[in-house]
Design a protein around this nucleic acid. Structure first.
Lengths: 238, 238
DNA sequence: AAAAGGATGTGATTCAGGTCACGCGGCGAA
DNA sequence: TTCGCCGCGTGACCTGAATCACATCCTTTT
């Protein structure tokens, strides 16, 4: 039993260690942190917390992926960002002492560890590197968020979609010999819509338009971007 | 001369001291910081830096106000946030080492102090309270930004406008006896449009609709919100 | 006080994108 | 294998918003 607990916690420790926030902590501290981490498993689409709820702490995504989103009056979701293992989520309320800023649900089945706000703050006071890491993390998030604002406000759906596909390609895609991307699309049109800020039908149509313009090729679930540069330039202007 | 410089710098020091980021620093450090701060005056609408430019450091807004925005292909501006004296701006690139995430221009004539990235980072390493303050600042910004994303994506213009007016009222407005707000609108329809993510004409019309629904009363530049609760509830749902 | 330049109201028009309503095909559960 | 749920494709339609084009109006400048 003791053995099992130790085993579990060293698992947790190795997870925590992979986190941008806690990577610099030494063994001892990690162990303490791991001892306080409460594990929770999430089914796909299970909700972890809801925007506006009082925030007790943050979560480490140990396995799987989650999405942070806001829900409109009509039930439509706008995804703010998606995070996959291993990262933290819900740092914002830990540092600004507010409620959860968005709803978070499992995009894929996930395992998360809960860490109380107080723990994390204490750590920050004691180990400034964490605070530093946090600033970097938050700054990156903020940058992305500002970009999202721009595209939502200033670009049209086709362009937003183009950008998303480009990013997916760059991240997951292999370069074809000629410099093109090719990757398997794991998202449904509905999911794409939620990221791009629209609805399913519009995505379907926009994808066809992109194809007709020769910017992408879709065969089943496989997306090919023959000329990534063209795709971005489309995303950025007209 | 020496005297004058000292005078100027103690001015700067008192400004820096009012900043969320540097408020906890002691005299000595503030003095060093002030010595390195380069002052710059901005006319209304003068541009301080442009999105995508390499970022050399952050700015302290000593006087006036600036807006951070993104420009669309057609030249339309989407304001991300507005900051007025005394605060810092452009912290993001200091902490994540990227370029400036948005363009910043003077909303009102302004005086700013430039602080090199390196300075600020060194301070963070030496005085963890700054890093802590930075996390709080960034977290707040991020929260606001996420809210902006939500309204842009999920609410319509009338609602966004309603929310903006409500916030203005809450911030600048006096409570009438009956609990209503009343304040002088300092923004033109164009400026409102840039914040709310639309164009002038649409703002004009949306304002009339809000009036017809009895949510606000506009007399010249004076806006009255008879029932703030009604206004928010409109902003949040239907 | 005249001129110039914003700021504002308003109609007409166009259009992207959201809504509805189906049909169809695939895939997993029973 | 069959049933039923999703995910996808599509046409018809509706509507919020952007665009264009003017006509005031109000300040600010000269």
């Amino acid at each position: 039993m003791n053995d099992r607990i130790l085993g579990m916690n060293s698992d947790k420790m190795t997870i925590l260690k992979q986190t941008e926030l806690f990577q610099n902590l030494d063994e001892e501290v990690l162990r303490i942190l791991a001892d306080h981490a409460v594990e929770k498993r999430l089914d796909r689409n299970e909700i972890l917390f809801i925007a506006g709820e009082e925030a007790a702490g943050l979560f480490v995504i140990a396995e799987g992926a989650v999405r942070a989103f806001r829900t409109g009056a009509d039930g439509r979701e706008q995804i703010i960002h998606v995070e996959r293992a291993v990262t933290t989520i819900a740092e914002v309320p830990v540092f600004d002492n507010g409620n959860y800023p968005s709803t978070v649900a499992a995009e894929e089945p996930a395992i998360v560890y809960f860490l109380a706000k107080k723990e994390v703050r204490n750590l920050c006071l004691k180990y400034p590197q964490i605070a530093l890491a946090a600033t970097e993390l938050l700054a990156k998030r903020l940058r992305k968020c500002a970009e999202l604002v721009e595209t939502l406000s200033l670009r049209e759906v086709g362009q937003r979609l183009a950008r998303l596909l480009f990013e997916q390609g760059k991240a997951e895609g292999k370069q074809s010999a000629d410099g093109g991307f090719r990757f398997k699309q794991k998202l449904t049109h509905n999911q794409l819509a939620a990221r791009v800020g629209t609805v399913r039908e519009v995505v379907t149509r926009a994808l066809f338009r992109l194809q007709n313009q020769g910017l992408i090729i879709i065969e089943g679930k496989v997306v090919t971007v023959p000329n990534p540069a063209l795709l971005t330039s489309y995303a950025d202007s007209g």
